[in-house]
């Protein structure tokens, strides 16, 4: 299964809809990183509302993906971690997730927008004409 990556101008939206195997998680990582480079995305929102297990492997994939995307020059927000998943992650070990998080996709997009504006990048905000 391949996770669809939606594009809204220079923002990418990804919604992980089902439990991923390790191989699928790695595939997702490379697909997303490639897509970010390809469209020179300014921001990426990853919705993980549907994930009911985030173990140390998945946590690492999420962190690594966020770091890679940031290295390319885009902002990343992880959205919608389930409360029980959050509790479990903290019990497993503090700081397993290092990426920025938001309650849901909507807030995640707001966060991205604020970040991008803060960076002085007007391409996303539409203040520019070209």
């Amino acid at each position: 299964m391949r996770i669809p990556i939606l594009r809204l101008d220079r923002i990418l939206l990804v919604s992980i809809q089902e439990d991923l195997t390790d191989d699928e998680a790695m595939q997702f990582q490379s697909d997303l990183v490639n897509r970010v480079a390809e469209v020179e995305a300014l921001g990426v929102a990853v919705d993980i509302t549907a994930l009911d297990v985030v173990d140390s492997y998945m946590a690492r994939v999420i962190n690594d993906t966020a770091s890679m995307v940031r290295l390319l020059g885009a902002e990343v927000v992880i959205c919608g971690i389930q409360p029980f998943v959050a509790m479990t992650l903290i019990e497993m070990g503090r700081d397993l997730i290092g990426a920025d998080c938001a309650f849901n996709l909507e807030q995640g997009l707001e966060m991205l927008r604020a970040r991008i504006v803060h960076r002085g990048d007007t391409r996303f905000t539409g203040d520019e004409d070209d």
Binding site: D52, V53, V54, D55, F84, V85, T88, M92
Partner: peptide
């Protein structure tokens, strides 16, 4: 409950990996 289910599933995931 959901919290226990999630903890157990996560532990199994770690150990089988």
């Amino acid at each position: 409950g959901k919290a226990h289910q999630t903890r157990l599933a996560t532990a199994v995931s770690e150990l089988t990996r």
